[in-house]
């Protein structure tokens, strides 16, 4: 490695008195002082959340209003801190989406345990769980910090769906051209 000698200039008299530097510093701080504040006044002003932000995990519905989760429990299984607890349930046979067969009866995410790792979103085969832009979770009790199923759907809302895989599957079955 090449050694580059850096010559240090001796300080001038003015520099050794510190005064020009102090005056320069005072000028900078004064200029800063009369500018408006950089910070945001949080509860009233909220930062703009970028797309792809990984906030609180939520459950979503497809554009037809069907809950997408089929309670396969993969997310429960993968969740590193075991924040998710799912009770699988069946879809009533007279429901229009009866062919999906299963949906969660209960779906709880304990936000005191969740570490926002996003693995649940990664693992979900149904694209049913998403970490969205909700970033502030507060509560006064432990129970308040557990998001139940209805709350999860409320936070998640509806996301566009490119596949509609269950509809396609049903249509294929009905037209007798099921590939499997």
């Amino acid at each position: 490695m090449a050694v580059i000698p850096v010559s240090r200039k001796p300080l001038t008299f003015a520099e050794r008195t510190y005064i020009p530097q102090i005056l320069g510093g005072l000028r900078i701080t004064f200029a800063r002082m009369i500018k408006p504040a950089e910070t945001m006044e949080y509860p009233e002003q909220r930062p703009e959340i970028p797309k792809n932000y990984r906030g609180v995990p939520t459950l979503v519905k497809d554009p037809n209003g069907r809950e997408k989760c089929v309670s396969c429990q993969l997310c429960e299984f993968v969740c590193p801190p075991k924040a998710i607890r799912i009770t699988p349930g069946e879809i009533a046979p007279d429901s229009p989406t009866a062919h999906v067969e299963k949906a969660p009866q209960a779906f709880d995410i304990d936000m005191l345990r969740c570490i926002y790792c996003g693995l649940c979103q990664e693992v979900c085969p149904e694209e049913a769980i998403f970490l969205q832009n909700q970033y502030s979770m507060t509560g006064l009790t432990r129970a308040e910090m557990v998001n139940h199923k209805d709350r999860l759907y409320e936070l998640g809302g509806t996301l566009p769906d490119q596949h509609h895989k269950w509809d396609k599957k049903k249509a294929a079955e009905e037209h007798g051209s099921a590939a499997h």
Partner: peptide, 13 residues
Amino acid sequence: KISAWIQGRPGPN
């Protein structure tokens, strides 16, 4: 307040 303004914050308000 002055420290806040110099540091670009609003200070106690």
